[in-house]
Computed example of a mutant assay.
Amino acid sequence: MAAAAAGGEDEAGGEATRRSGTNGPPPGLLTLVATPIGNLGDLSPRALEALRSADAVLCEDTRVTGALLARHGVSVPLVPLHEHNEAAQVPRVIGRLAAGEKLALASDAGTPLMSDPGYRLVRAAIAAGLPVTAVPGPNAAVMAVTLSGLPPHPFLFVGFLPARAAARAAELGGLRAAERAGLRATLVFYEAPHRLAEALAAMAEALGGDRPAAVARELTKRFEEVRRGSLAELAAWYARHEARGEVVVVVGPPAPEAPAGEAELDARLREALAAGISVRDAAAAVAAATGAARKAVYRRALEIARAAAGKAG
């Protein structure tokens, strides 16, 4: 948190980031502005000032951002930037920034780039040497994690799962494989309300129905709800009750597996070594998959490898 100590130098520091070493016009500034995820009172003073002082505001839906700005008496040109036009808009926006304009990027709700447009624009601005900053604020994923009652760190933000069942099962299968290899993190998903029940059922099948989870809906709004239970229980609940509003699903990390016995460790190590994997890599893979102590597994792998070499000799 050392950066917080420089908070009193925000204006001077901001200007410093915009200085250019060339004789041309100073570069502009791209500011990523987090907007409310429900309660309009969550728009921060800094966010409002960044929007008000921008030469133009890039946004997903001009109607949504326009209504937010009108509520605060702000009149700024709005430029649509969404998944369907971002590739075409990026060169134009980079040109405006290079000409010295101050532009703000706002999502319909929440923090830009987090399952929202803007990544290609930010990458292009960085590649062009143009300054990029952000005004932090609301984020549904982080809020859901804090309210879930599940371990807050580490967490892995997955975003939206594929809508098609086969693709969704494949992605969840990849996450489960990563967990078998040692990943221990709380998982965070966004989901459309009409797909929530089938998504929870798919998670229960791939990750385990007994996994603790939480479904957070309508965060910061009047009917905010966080329902907690196992994946199987939540899948059954939402199969009977229609979900409404924006949804975040939080899934707790897998329970530690029982330590593998000596016979299982030896079998895994022999299989890995027979496949031509080095002793070090075989030990690392088996230790990650079983949760056994890495040094102990490495010692055993050396013993097995030496014994095999002796027989071959």
Rank of each mutant, 00 (worst) to 15 (best):
M114T: 14
P162D: 02
A56G: 12
T220N: 04
P36T: 03
G182K: 03
V145G: 10
A255K: 12
F223V: 00
A6V: 04
A199S: 15
L161N: 11
A307N: 14
S230Y: 00
A258I: 02
T111M: 13
A243R: 06
T186Y: 03
S75A: 15
G173I: 14
R71Y: 03
G7S: 09
N85C: 13
H153V: 11
E198G: 02
G310M: 15
V297M: 05
R280P: 06
A301S: 13
A163Q: 14
V57K: 06
E191M: 04
A124Q: 12
P77K: 08
L302T: 08
M1P: 13
H194I: 08
V90Q: 08
V76G: 08
V93M: 09
L161Y: 07
R180Y: 08
L105Q: 00
P259E: 14
V90H: 01
P112Q: 03
V247Y: 00
L156D: 09
R300Q: 12
D108N: 12
G41L: 05
E264T: 15
V286A: 13
E233D: 15
V57M: 05
K102S: 13
G173F: 07
P27C: 07
G129L: 11
A99V: 01
A140D: 01
P91E: 10
K102W: 09
P77S: 12
V74R: 08
R300S: 03
L81G: 03
L81C: 11
A167Y: 05
P256W: 12
T220W: 04
R280I: 00
E205I: 02
V142H: 05
P152A: 15
V93Q: 09
G310E: 15
G28F: 05
A104N: 07
V286F: 07
A124W: 10
R270D: 11
V33I: 11
N85S: 11
A305L: 03
L105D: 06
A177R: 13
A272V: 04
Q89I: 03
L69F: 08
A216E: 01
R306A: 10
G149M: 07
E171S: 15
P27G: 05
A216I: 03
A267F: 06
V215P: 12
T22M: 03
Y190S: 02
E257P: 09
P256R: 06
L97G: 04
R168Q: 10
A169K: 14
